[in-house]
């Protein structure tokens, strides 16, 4: 395991981030008071259901929130710089050079009327002033890195399979050798075998090029396997975070328990599993206390009224739940 040591450098720090969407009826707090830390070379998995704010979080970090979406408060530090304070133009200088993103559906993210090679070159030319020949060489080299032959440089997106398009997206994200790559459900629309080859490719490239990854998906069983650390999001909040194996073998939050119980396994005895009844709250008007309390099987009186404080356990495993009040290894105010 490539676990984070305390000596490791912090690459990205998000502090009390609030982001969401301005609508007629008010503000949809898709990301509410989210804080976390990402170290250099680390693979952080963020899991949650649709509408829990995981994509909004990714777009907020990339400074890509547009139209009615905005960051309301909070700070984002990247490589020791307060990037959330940067202007649009200021951020353009670091986007893709230092941090890049693989979008959810490669089918829509690639331009259908441009050859994939040209699209890769566009990304290079936007940030580096090098000759067309050099850019082309670099693009072909990147395609090779994701196991796509250089002859595909002249292919249009529609001529590639779904898995190949997704690999082109990964090549595109890595073309300027960023230190952080955010991957928003990069394998969701793909078949299991293709998904597995892409994951293996990402892991291989990560070891080779030493970048950090934030991997967002709803597929918890996959995340546990590939991440160093795991954060579980529910209704705009991170409700549990810790080393992946820890969260998997000792889930603390009832929601995490429920999620773990929602994936049948391929080995061991078959047991009836429960899933979680009910549905996530409306983010326009979220519950006052813990956001999970209407669906929680272990709900207490105070859950409805006060949001639980974060409780820290050994091994940097934190949870926001009243069940653990006074039980943490390290008390924090």
């Amino acid at each position: 395991m490539r676990n984070s040591e305390s000596s490791k450098q912090v690459l990205l720090e998000v502090r009390n981030l609030q982001a969401g969407y301005e609508v007629k009826k008010g503000f949809v707090g898709a990301v509410d008071d989210v804080s976390f830390c990402l170290h250099k070379g680390e693979f952080l998995g963020i899991a949650g259901e649709s509408g829990c704010g995981k994509s909004t979080l990714a777009f907020a970090i990339m400074n890509l929130l547009r139209d009615n979406a905005r960051i309301r408060s909070g700070e984002i530090d990247f490589q020791g710089r307060l990037v959330s304070a940067l202007s649009g133009e200021g951020f353009n200088k670091i986007r893709w050079v230092n941090l890049s993103m693989v979008f959810q559906s490669a089918m829509n993210a690639l331009n259908p009327v441009l050859k994939v090679g040209e699209q890769l070159c566009d990304a290079i030319h936007a940030h580096r002033s090098i000759s067309a020949q050099k850019a082309k060489e670099r693009a072909q080299q990147m395609l090779q890195l994701v196991d796509i032959g250089p002859e595909r440089y002249d292919s249009y997106p529609h001529q590639l399979s779904g898995g190949m398009k997704q690999r082109v997206m990964i090549a595109m994200a890595l073309v300027l050798e960023p230190q952080l790559v955010i991957m928003d459900e990069p394998t969701t629309a793909l078949d299991v075998v293709v998904q597995r080859t892409i994951i293996e490719k990402i892991q291989e490239l990560q070891q080779q090029l030493d970048f950090s990854v934030i991997f967002i998906t709803h597929d918890l069983s996959l995340l546990v396997e590939i991440s160093d650390r795991l954060a579980i999001m529910y209704a705009g909040k991170i409700i549990e975070e810790g080393p992946a194996q820890d969260v998997f073998s000792h889930p603390l939050h009832p929601y995490t328990h429920g999620l773990m119980n929602a994936f049948p396994s391929l080995s061991g005895p078959i047991r009836r599993m429960g899933g979680i009844e009910g549905k996530p709250p409306d983010l326009l008007d979220p519950p006052k206390g813990c956001r999970f309390f209407p669906r929680c099987s272990q709900v207490m009186d105070r859950c409805a009224n006060t949001y639980p404080p974060e409780i820290l356990f050994e091994g940097d495993h934190r949870v926001a739940c009243h069940l653990y009040q006074g039980k943490g290894d390290i008390q924090n105010g």
């Binding site: 259901e49 649709s50 709803h218 597929d219 918890l220 429920g258 999620l259 119980n261 929602a262 994936f263 599993m273 429960g274 899933g275 979680i276 009844e277 549905k279």
Partner: peptide, 8 residues
């Protein structure tokens, strides 16, 4: 469907 409703 979302994972939490799948099982039900």
């Amino acid at each position: 469907l979302d994972v939490s409703i799948r099982m039900s």
